[in-house]
Simulated scan of single mutants.
Amino acid sequence: MTRRIGSGKVVIATHNAGKLKEIAALMAPHGVDCISAGSLGLPEPAETGRTFVENALIKARAAAEASGMVALADDSGLSVAALDNRPGVYTADWAERQWFEGDPGRDWYMAMGKVEGMLQAKGADTPRDAWFTSVLALAWPDGEYAIYEGRVDGTLTWPPRGTMGFGYDPVFVPAGRELTFAELDPAEKHAISHRADAFAKLVADQFEG
């Protein structure tokens, strides 16, 4: 049987406030109090993995070792079929500004525009099928870990719509919906998202049965 977290405090290996809020909302019903690696002053490890699983483990293990607590990391990204499944694990990298562009940090509108530009360059009839992947990695300070993977399929739209999401949410329309992730009520998005899919597997393994 998989090792259990139990109730208590878990370090979420992120410095992203939006991601922390979303994960904390999913964990709260199970008596888990989430604290971010950022609030603990933990450094962000280099994400040198070539897959979502590798990067999630890098982040979870680093947070667990530095804090001495159970850590949970999410590595997620957008894959576009017509772009050979890119940006994939480089989803966040596509939003990084160069030093000469000023305001260091991530520019998600720029990243969405890059995806759109590449699709338009392939022609008006290019399929816009895409999916979000989420890999959750739980790590204990002694090295034990567990992995949970989730996915949601959909299509890309342009221009971006909505203000309630983050990342590529404003251009992603999940299958069976007409609104983008950024237009959906957060509760509805949480119920159908890639992260929700991964969390359902985590919950079934960690808190049920």
Score class of each variant (00 low, 15 high):
R128S: 09
I147C: 00
D205P: 04
S76C: 04
D84K: 15
V115S: 11
P141F: 08
P170M: 13
D142V: 03
S67P: 14
A25N: 04
T133N: 14
A196W: 05
K59I: 04
W99G: 06
A64W: 08
W131G: 01
V89K: 00
Y109M: 11
A62Y: 01
A204E: 14
E96H: 01
A111C: 13
P170T: 12
T51V: 11
M27V: 10
S193Y: 05
E22T: 02
P159H: 10
G8D: 04
G143L: 02
G6P: 01
I192K: 07
V135I: 14
T48H: 00
W158G: 10
T155R: 02
G150M: 06
A146R: 08
W140A: 07
G162I: 07
M69P: 01
G154A: 09
R3E: 12
R177F: 15
A175M: 05
L179D: 12
V173F: 10
E116Q: 11
F100N: 09
R50D: 12
A130H: 11
K19Y: 06
A111D: 02
E65H: 10
G38Q: 05
F207D: 04
R86D: 11
A196F: 12
A64Q: 01
G113W: 07
A130Y: 03
L138I: 15
F132K: 03
L42D: 13
R151N: 08
D93Q: 14
E96K: 15
T157S: 01
L119F: 02
Q206E: 07
A13H: 03
D205G: 10
R4F: 03
G113E: 15
A137I: 02
A198Y: 00
D125C: 07
L138V: 15
G49Y: 08
T2I: 09
I12D: 12
H194G: 13
M110G: 12
G102N: 13
K21A: 14
S193V: 11
A204Y: 00
A13L: 09
V173I: 15
R106Q: 14
A198L: 00
G113C: 05
G113H: 08
D33Q: 14
K189L: 12
T2G: 00
V32A: 09
A191P: 03
D93P: 07
D74A: 05
A81T: 07
R106P: 03
T133Y: 04
T180H: 13
A146K: 05
L119R: 01
T163W: 08
P104I: 15
W131A: 08
D33Y: 02
A28N: 01
A46E: 15
A63S: 09
V135E: 06
G8P: 14
K21L: 10
V173D: 05
E178H: 13
G209M: 03
Y168E: 13
E65I: 15
E188T: 14
H190V: 09
V115Y: 09
P141L: 08
W108D: 02
A73W: 04
D84W: 12
I192D: 03
G165W: 03
G105R: 03
K201I: 01
A191Q: 02
A146G: 10
R128F: 13
I192P: 11
N16W: 06
R161Y: 01
Y168Q: 12
G176R: 04
